[in-house]
C-alpha cells in the first residue's frame, strides 16, 4: 500500500520539477480554492485549460492521470447519483418517496464530480513532480508560523519527515494486522452500526499500539544519539526564489480570482 503513494513521483526535468516545494503547495492551495469556487461552464473551461497546460508543462502523460481517475469511478458514480436524487425536490422530473430527480440535482452532481476530477488532476501533477522530501520541506515552511506556539521549524521538519517515513512502515503493519484478524475469524460486516463499530477495534487498537511502539523505539534511539530540541534549528541560508516560483504563484492567484468573478 505504501508503494502506492511513494511510487507516484516521476523524475523529470520540467519547470514544475524545478520549482520549490513550498511554491507548489501554495499554488496547489490557490488552485484548490479555485476548484471549490468554480460553478460555471466558463469556469470549468478555464480549469481545464490550466490543468492541460500544467500537465503538458510537467511532462505527465494523460494515461497516468486517466488511470488515477478511473480507479475512483465508483466514488464518482455514487456522488453523482446521490446529488441527482437527493439534492432538491423543486421542479422534479420524477419523484418517488424520498427520491427526487431534478435539474438542480443533475447540475449539482455534475459540478461536484467535476470538482473532484480536477482536484485529482492537480494532485497528480503535484505529486508527480515533487518528491516526498520536497513536499515535507514545503509544508514545513508553510507551517513555520507555528514557531510562535513553541514548535520550531526544525522540529516541524523532523516531525514531517519522520511521518512520511512511517507511512509505508505502518501501512504494512496495518495490512498484516488486518490479515491476522481476518485469519482469526474477524468479521467486518455487521448487521447494524454498533457491530460494525466494534469490529473496527481489532484493527484500530493494534495499529495504534504498533505506531506508538515504533515511535517509542525511534525516540529512544534519537535520545541515545544526543538529539536535542535546540539542535533541531535548521541552518537558515538565503532562501532562493526563482522567477518560475513567482510566475506560478501569480498565475495560480489569477486563476483563483477569475473563478470568483466568473
Amino acid at each position: 500500500m505504501g508503494n502506492d503513494i511513494m511510487g507516484q513521483y516521476i523524475a523529470g526535468d520540467s519547470v514544475f520539477h524545478k520549482m520549490r516545494g513550498s511554491t507548489k503547495l501554495i499554488c496547489f492551495f490557490l488552485i484548490l480554492t479555485a476548484v471549490i469556487l468554480t460553478d460555471s461552464a466558463a469556469g470549468f473551461f478555464l480549469l481545464f485549460m490550466t490543468a492541460a497546460g500544467s500537465a503538458i508543462l510537467a511532462g505527465i502523460g494523460l494515461r497516468n492521470i486517466g488511470k488515477s481517475i478511473a480507479r475512483l469511478k465508483l466514488f464518482f458514480i455514487t456522488i453523482f447519483l446521490m446529488n441527482l436524487f437527493f439534492f432538491s425536490s423543486e421542479q422534479a422530473w420524477w419523484s418517488f418517496w424520498i427520491f427526487h430527480l431534478s435539474p438542480a440535482g443533475l447540475e449539482q452532481g455534475t459540478v461536484v464530480v467535476m470538482r473532484v476530477v480536477f482536484l485529482l488532476l492537480f494532485s497528480r501533477i503535484l505529486i508527480g513532480t515533487t518528491t516526498p522530501a520536497e513536499l515535507t520541506g514545503g509544508l514545513e515552511i508553510l507551517l513555520s508560523p507555528l514557531g510562535v506556539f513553541g514548535i520550531s521549524t526544525g522540529e516541524t521538519a523532523m516531525i514531517l519527515s519522520v511521518a512520511v517515513q512511517f507511512i509505508p512502515i505502518l501501512s504494512k503493519e496495518a495490512d498484516q494486522i488486518r490479515k491476522a484478524q481476518i485469519a482469526r475469524g474477524a468479521e467486518f460486516e455487521g448487521r447494524h452500526f454498533w457491530e460494525r463499530a466494534k469490529s473496527a477495534l481489532p484493527v484500530v487498537i493494534p495499529v495504534f499500539l504498533a505506531a506508538f511502539r515504533r515511535a517509542d523505539e525511534l525516540a529512544l534511539a534519537m535520545e541515545a544519539r544526543g538529539y536535542r530540541k535546540e539542535k533541531a534549528q535548521r541552518k537558515r541560508g538565503r532562501i532562493s526564489i526563482h522567477l518560475c516560483d513567482v510566475q506560478a504563484i501569480v498565475l495560480s492567484g489569477a486563476v483563483c480570482m477569475s473563478q470568483i468573478l466568473l
Binding site: 494486522i177 490479515k179 491476522a180 482469526r184 475469524g185 493494534p206 499500539l209 504498533a210
Partner: peptide, 20 residues
C-alpha cells in the same frame, strides 16, 4: 470462507502485535 477461517489457523510473525 467462514469454515476456512475455522479450519486454518495462522500465526503471523510477532503475533503479539495483534492483541487488543
Amino acid at each position: 470462507r467462514k469454515l476456512l477461517r475455522k479450519k486454518v489457523g495462522f500465526v503471523f510473525q510477532y503475533p503479539e502485535h495483534q492483541l487488543f
